[in-house]
Amino acid sequence: MKAVITVIGRDKVGIIATVSVACSGFGVNIVDISQTVLDGYFAMIMLVELGGMKESSFLEFSAALKKIGEENAVDIRVMHEDIFNSMHRI
């Protein structure tokens, strides 16, 4: 399954690196990455493939990223890609 990681907040040096390291720690492969600045806020989205994830579950991965977000004062969410596909594609 593929998921989308969104990181939204004030730009912070090294945040992409931190999230990428976490992904690699869980065996999560980054498929695509894109970023923009929105109303002065930094917004990054990452499409990831969870198929190769080690024993840990989606929930553990999602909780780990949420914690990184809290530590860095940014909002990080991991969401199944289907919610975006359903909403924005017919």
Binding site: D32, S34, Q35, I45, F84, M87
Partner: peptide, 16 residues
């Protein structure tokens, strides 16, 4: 790849 604006729109709907 999903459109970044679409992704952010969904997240904004849920967050805000």
């Amino acid at each position: 790849m999903l459109n970044i604006q679409d992704v952010l729109e969904t997240v904004r709907m849920i967050r805000e």
